[in-house]
């Protein structure tokens, strides 16, 4: 089984070890962002995706989550 974001082997939650760490960091840091700027999860992912300081793998996970959220919303509509 391959990672949902890249071609590497899955470790947990359908992510490889690299993207799993990025995903966990994303979830962990959202609280900081929410307190700092009072933004939603979706807005947070968008900010992260465009921030030049964000790690490469984190951007990939953020993009994946945004696209999948959009797909899910599209299917609902």
């Amino acid at each position: 089984m391959k990672c949902k974001v890249c071609d590497r082997e899955i470790v947990e939650d359908d992510f490889c070890s690299m993207h799993l760490k990025a995903f966990k960091n994303l979830v962990e840091r959202y609280d900081c962002w929410r307190k700092a700027l009072r933004i939603s999860w979706k807005e947070y992912l968008s900010e992260i995706r465009h921030n030049p300081l964000t790690g490469e793998c984190t951007k990939e996970v953020a993009s994946y989550l945004i696209e999948n959220e959009e797909k899910r919303n599209g299917e609902e509509i």
Binding site: M18, N25, A36, L37, T54, G55, T58
Partner: peptide, 12 residues
């Protein structure tokens, strides 16, 4: 490298 690639910046 992993820490850098998986980094999430926080605002201040």
């Amino acid at each position: 490298e992993k820490s850098i690639k998986c980094f999430v910046p926080t605002p201040y």
